[in-house]
């Protein structure tokens, strides 16, 4: 796969720094964070709660502006939502007043385009939601809702998929199932995927590379290469070096934690969110 023209990264974050304005003063969420993601690469970003993972992803999606630094997609600055970027949110984020199929049609309604019915049907069949088109979100399980939201993000065929802790609310078995499914979809479509999680085993299972973030303000602490061949099976998770890598990443995260535990008093509660 390795990069498009002249080895230019598909997606690059350069010196991303972000402050939020809170009642107790500016909150430093991201600090000079830089990463490159190759075309068709699957990377995960892991880090402790509240380290700015979501801030990073929302900035990459053009939903947030950066205080300084920039995000480049195919060498061009991202300064707003981009049609080549699909986003999968925490907790599925389906609209409860719309049926599944109308949820999937939302991006097309907004863009004023005709939905690609064949592609959507294919995706729905692919994730096992064929026949559920007219169900409402409340009638679907958490796993099914999240699968629907993945279909929604892929429906307009973006080249980059940003996934913000998509499976955080699911139970362990469903999560394993979803991880297998995501890997397969990635192998079929070869999207560039940036996946945020605080589940390290999930990150190791899915990624080509893992970026470990420090506690707030989020900095790039370390990058891990994951060597396992594709497609991976859940058996990988039982191997010794898998455990070792998980433990090493864990140590890296904990190692970084104490230093960052001293923010201004008020800031602490405001950012209880997942990363």
């Amino acid at each position: 796969m390795g990069g498009n023209e002249a080895g230019r990264p598909k997606l690059a974050v350069e010196g991303a720094t972000k402050f939020y304005d809170t009642k107790s003063g500016p909150l430093h969420a991201l600090d000079n964070f830089s990463i490159d993601v190759r075309d068709g690469e699957f990377v995960c970003v892991v880090g402790p709660s509240g380290c700015g993972k979501t801030t990073l992803l929302w900035s990459m999606a053009g939903l947030h502006s950066l205080t300084s630094g920039q995000v480049l997609l195919d060498g061009e600055v991202v300064n707003g939502p981009h049609p080549q970027i699909g986003m999968v949110f925490q907790e599925a984020n389906l609209l409860p007043w719309r049926s599944l199929i109308r949820n999937i049609h939302l991006p097309f309604e907004i863009k004023g385009k005709q939905p690609d019915a064949n592609w959507i049907t294919h995706l729905l069949e692919r994730v096992g939601l064929g026949g559920f088109e007219h169900k409402y979100p409340r009638e679907l399980s958490g796993g099914m809702q999240q699968r629907a939201s993945i279909v929604r993000a892929l429906s307009f065929n973006p080249s980059v998929l940003l996934m913000d802790e998509p499976f955080g609310a699911l139970d362990a078995f469903t999560r394993d199932e979803m991880n297998m499914m995501v890997e397969q979809i990635w192998l079929e479509t070869r999207k560039t995927i940036v996946f945020i999680t605080h589940n390290i085993a999930e990150a190791v299972f899915l990624s080509d590379r893992i970026f470990v973030m420090s506690a707030r303000p989020g900095r790039l602490a370390r990058t891990f290469e994951v060597p396992y061949a594709r497609p991976r099976t859940l058996d990988v998770m039982a191997e010794r070096d898998f455990f070792e890598m998980v433990n090493e990443i864990k140590a890296e995260i904990h190692h970084g934690t104490p230093a960052a535990q001293t923010p201004a008093a008020g800031g602490q509660q405001t950012v209880r969110a997942h990363g």
Partner: peptide, 13 residues
């Protein structure tokens, strides 16, 4: 950049 709200999902959908 200061006007962005911190992405907080305490509230369930």
């Amino acid at each position: 950049h200061l006007k962005d709200e911190i992405p907080d999902f305490q509230k369930q959908p």
